[in-house]
C-alpha cells in the first residue's frame, strides 16, 4: 500500500482478515492515540523528559502494530534520548513530527473505516 501512513495488509494479517475488528481497532486508535500524542507534546513543551519518555514508551507498540513506518524510528529515538538524557535538543522536533503523523494517520483511518 503506497501513500498511506499505516499498513492495512499488516493489520489484516494481524486480525486474520477480520475487517470488523480492523474497524474496531481503527476506532480505538482514533480515540486513544492522538490524546496520548497531545500529552507527549505538552510534556515536551514543559521539558518534562521523564513524562515524554513514558508516553513514547506507551505509544511505541501501537505505532509498531499499525506499521506507521515514517515515525517508527522517531518514537524509539524519543524514548531512548529522553530516558538517557542525551541530545534532548533534538527531541521537540521529533515529538512534533510524531504528533503530526499520528493525526494524519487518524484522518486516514477515519476516512477509510469510520465514515
Amino acid at each position: 500500500m503506497t501513500n498511506s501512513y499505516f499498513n492495512i495488509e499488516h493489520l489484516l494479517e494481524l486480525t486474520n482478515n477480520d475487517i470488523n475488528f480492523v474497524k474496531e481497532l481503527a476506532g480505538v486508535f482514533c480515540e486513544t492515540i492522538p490524546p496520548m500524542a497531545d500529552e507527549m507534546q505538552i510534556a515536551c513543551d514543559e521539558s518534562n523528559w521523564q513524562a515524554v519518555s513514558q508516553l513514547a514508551h506507551k505509544l511505541k507498540p501501537s505505532i509498531d502494530t499499525m506499521r506507521i513506518e515514517s515515525i517508527r524510528d522517531d518514537i524509539l529515538q524519543i524514548e531512548s534520548r529522553t530516558k538517557q538524557n542525551i541530545e534532548l535538543h533534538t527531541v521537540p522536533a521529533l515529538v512534533t513530527k510524531v504528533c503530526e503523523v499520528v493525526y494524519l494517520t487518524r484522518d486516514e483511518l477515519m476516512a477509510s473505516f469510520l465514515k
Partner: peptide
C-alpha cells in the same frame, strides 16, 4: 494494559 489499542489487539487474538 493501559494502551487501549494494544489491549484490544491482545484480547482479540486470545479470543480466537
Amino acid at each position: 494494559e493501559d494502551d487501549a489499542f494494544y489491549c484490544s489487539l491482545l484480547a482479540h487474538h486470545l479470543s480466537l
